[in-house]
Amino acid sequence: MIKARITVTLKNGVLDPQGKAIEHALSGLGFGGVGAVRQGKVFDVELAESDKAKAEADLKAMCDKLLANTVIENYSVAIT
């Protein structure tokens, strides 16, 4: 079994209203010097697969087909 963590983040230049709201909330809590905050998503995936290369290829295909919208998002795959 392979476990992986997929991280999906907004591309640079794509406005992130939720990140902005979080940024303001952090400043409001008194955390000084908070720069830009960008919100993303994390998926922990378990795969019944022993071949790491095959797992990585499958995970990337999952990102391209469903987990990320590549019009606005980037993704990274880390096998843990």
């Binding site: 794509v14 406005l15 209203p17 939720q18 709201a21 919208n69 019009v71 606005i72």
Partner: peptide, 17 residues
């Protein structure tokens, strides 16, 4: 339709949230 790739672009959270 945009998620299916039948139209270009994406629809994101309203800026007002």
């Amino acid at each position: 339709l945009v998620e299916a790739g039948l139209l270009p672009g994406a629809l994101m959270r309203n800026t007002s949230l």
